[in-house]
Computed example of a mutant assay.
Amino acid sequence: MEKRKLGNTGIDVSVICLGTMTWGEQNTEAEAHSQLDHALERGVNFIDTAELYPVPPMEETRGRTESIIGTWLKRTGRRDRVVLASKVSGPGEWVNYIRGGPRLDRTQMTDALDDSLRRLNTDYLDLYQVHWPARPTNFFGNLGYTHEEDPDATPIEETLEALDEFVRQGKVRHVGVSNETPWGVMEYLRLARERDWPRMVSIQNPYNLLNRSFEVGLAEMAIREHVGLMAYSPMGFGVLSGKYLDSTPANARITLFPRFARYSNAHGVEATRAYVELARAHGLSPAQMALAFVNSRPFLTSTIIGATSMAQLEEDIESAELVLGDEVLEAIETIHTRHPNPCP
Results as ranks from 00 to 15, higher is better:
D164N: 09
W183R: 08
E149D: 08
L191C: 06
A153D: 01
G184M: 08
T181S: 15
L160H: 01
H174G: 03
I223P: 03
E161H: 14
E148Y: 02
D164C: 11
A222F: 01
E161D: 08
I203W: 01
E180Y: 01
L189N: 07
V177D: 03
F214N: 00
L143P: 02
M186A: 12
R195A: 12
R224V: 05
R168F: 11
E220R: 04
N179A: 12
H226R: 11
E194R: 13
S202M: 01
L189M: 08
E157A: 11
G176H: 04
L191W: 00
L218R: 15
Y207E: 07
R173T: 11
H147T: 09
E149Y: 10
F166H: 02
V175I: 14
E220T: 10
G144S: 15
E158H: 03
A219H: 00
R199N: 08
T154E: 05
E148D: 14
H226E: 09
N179L: 14
W183A: 12
N179R: 15
E149R: 10
Y188R: 15
S213Y: 02
Y188F: 13
G144C: 07
F140P: 04
E149H: 15
S178L: 15
S178A: 15
E215A: 03
A222H: 01
G176Y: 00
G141P: 00
P151A: 10
W197S: 12
P198Q: 04
D152K: 14
S202L: 03
N179W: 04
L218W: 00
H147A: 06
A222E: 00
Y207F: 05
N205P: 04
L210C: 09
L210M: 07
T159L: 05
N142V: 15
T146Q: 07
R224S: 03
H226G: 06
E158R: 01
L209A: 02
E180T: 08
Y207L: 14
Q204S: 05
N179P: 14
K171I: 08
R173L: 13
P198S: 11
E220Q: 12
E220P: 09
R224H: 06
T146Y: 13
Q204M: 06
L163P: 08
E161P: 04
G217H: 09
D164P: 13
V175E: 07
N208W: 08
N179I: 05
A222R: 01
F139Q: 01
Q169D: 13
R199I: 07
A153F: 00
P198K: 06
R168W: 10
E220W: 05
D150Q: 07
E187S: 14
N179S: 14
I203L: 14
A153W: 00
E220C: 01
F139M: 11
E225N: 12
N208F: 08
V177R: 05
K171T: 07
P151Q: 09
E158I: 15
M221V: 11
E158G: 02
S213T: 07
E225M: 10
V175Y: 06
V216R: 15
V185H: 02
E158S: 06
V185R: 02
R195Y: 07
V185L: 08
T181M: 00
L160D: 00
S213K: 11
M221F: 03
G170W: 13
F166Q: 07
L218C: 09
E149K: 08
S178T: 10
W183D: 04
A162I: 15
V175A: 06
Q204D: 06
E220S: 06
V201T: 04
P151S: 01
E148M: 11
L189P: 03
N179G: 14
F166A: 12
D150T: 13
